[in-house]
Design a protein around this nucleic acid. Structure first.
Length: 424
RNA sequence: AGAGAGGUGGCAGAGUGGUCGAUUGCGGCGGUCUUGAAAACCGUUGACUGUAACAGGUCCGGGGGUUCGAAUCCCUCCCUCUCUGCCA
């Protein structure tokens, strides 16, 4: 959520930013919002005056009662009842306006960082770098959805039976590979100074709002209505919300947390031709890294996180590229996002395996996640996160890129975790 | 799931209708003393909103109500703890 003070004081910048994100009617909406805000403050101050008068009369009555001047006290009571009426109606107006302000604020996405390229769609994303050679596959090489059948390591049919499409069952070396990747990713993160946490994977509504999934992405999350809890679409939600409503002591910054969780996504309306196999699932595993930093450090931190993720991909010996997302393709809450894509050789396409973002104060504002600066003033912190990494597409790329006519070679770095070097 | 108890400032813990945003202790910060530190003593120390700055307003789990006035009374929801039951 954008800060009202920023909207007030840097209106032009806000409108320009929203435009870059392809937000429709930015200028009008911002103007309307500022108008509402103006109204709100007007009504607020009228209400407060009323309240102040009523308060002082009540105090007076209290004094009189104490001194035994009952009759005089009674005479004051009449005065307050009118004030009370007025204050009540103003309070109603106020809460209506506040609700509108809130709704309007929730609609606005985060502003893009100045380095974000303009653009409408994924085609306008900027390739920042590419690393590794595109593998040349042997004659008769298979896409991963056939490889997993051939070696009987991931079973979609079984998943269909017990849950539905998009819920694969990992078996044998396939299950072992999942576990190896999770452990590898967690160990690496801990090595890099992140603290491991195992959060709940069902979260309440407040948490959904805190990180911005609600109300924007309502309908994309599985909702356990009986208890009004949501299955998390990413560990970002619980891990960042650990710090909701907190003023973090400066000496504890930066906060670096990591965690593995399953992630659940309804993916309503996003099924198409290129989502076969592991490319898009309703449930998958991911290790997430989250950082909370001082505002002035957050972009440096984003670069660190990006480099860290690239390091993982290198260790896994996967060819990858890094994209800087354009304004139109970025997420609602992000100010700058890098996507990491690995090359999936049998599909001949790049697959997104990680997304690292700086949210600046957008989440922190909703989360009320703050610190006290040198002058003792309470200020919002910056939040960041990145996948490190999401498993399914990593698995797809490992399987496809390393296949040989007589088995699939596993990346060396995983050998100790796997207990085998080759599938098949 | 049933019965009971309870949710107050960073923590502990008073306050049961009136100058209570809240006694006190701990912790934190500043100072005195000290070569320095500890101890002791003195002072200070919540958040949000609002203002140029004051003032003012709001907040004692959430929401609603009674009252001139609510942390305190009533209703409702949520949560925690103890016991009983059940169970990975």
């Amino acid at each position: 959520m954008l800060q009202l003070t920023v909207l007030r004081e840097q209106t032009d910048l806000v409108v320009a930013g929203l435009n870059k994100k392809n937000y429709k009617n930015a200028a009008q909406e911002v103007a309307a919002l500022l108008d509402l805000d103006q109204q709100r403050r007007q009504v607020q101050s009228e209400h407060d005056d009323m309240q102040a008068k009523a308060n002082s009369i009540s105090k007076e009555i209290g004094m009189l009662m104490k001194n035994g001047e009952r009759e005089k006290a009674e005479s004051y009571k009449a005065q307050t009842s009118e004030l009370k009426q007025q204050a009540k109606s103003l309070a109603e107006q106020l809460s209506t306006i506040e609700e509108e302000v809130q709704k309007a604020l929730y609609r606005l996405p985060n502003l893009p960082h100045e380095s974000v390229p303009a653009g409408r769609s994924a085609e306008d994303n900027e390739v920042v770098l590419q690393h590794g050679d595109i593998p040349q596959l042997h004659e008769g090489a298979l896409p991963h959805w056939e490889l997993i059948q051939k070696y009987d390591i991931i079973d979609f049919e079984l998943g269909n039976k017990i849950s539905g499409a998009g819920f694969p069952v990992y078996k044998k070396q396939g299950a072992r590979l999942q576990r190896a990747l999770i452990n590898f990713f967690l160990d690496e993160a801990i090595q890099a100074g992140y603290m491991e946490v195992q959060p709940p994977i069902l979260v309440n509504e407040a948490s959904g709002y805190g990180t911005g999934q609600l109300p924007d992405k309502d309908g994309q999350m599985y909702h356990a209505t009986a208890d009004n809890l949501y299955l998390i679409p990413t560990a970002e939600v619980p891990i960042t919300n650990l710090y909701r409503d907190t003023i973090v002591p400066v000496e504890q910054l930066p906060i670096k947390n990591t965690g593995h969780t399953p992630c659940f996504r309804r993916e309503a309306g996003s099924w198409g031709a290129d989502v076969r196999g592991l490319n898009r699932l309703h449930q998958f595993d991911k290790v997430e890294i989250v950082q909370i930093t001082l505002p002035e450090k957050s972009y440096e931190t984003l670069e660190d996180m990006s480099r860290y993720i690239q390091g993982l991909l290198q260790k896994l010996e996967l060819p990858f590229r890094v994209l800087r997302l354009c304004g139109g393709d970025m997420g609602f809450t992000s100010a700058l996002t890098y996507d990491m894509e690995v090359y999936s050789a049998a599909q001949s396409r790049w697959l997104e395996v990680s997304s690292a973002s700086n949210f600046e104060t957008f989440q922190a504002n909703r989360l009320k996640l703050r610190y006290k600066n040198e002058t003792g003033k309470t200020q919002l912190l910056h939040t960041l996160n990145g996948s490190a990494l999401a498993l399914p597409r990593i698995v797809a790329a490992i399987l496809e890129n390393n296949q040989t006519p007589d088995g699939i070679n596993m990346p060396k770095v995983l050998h100790p975790y796997l207990g085998f070097e080759k599938i098949g």
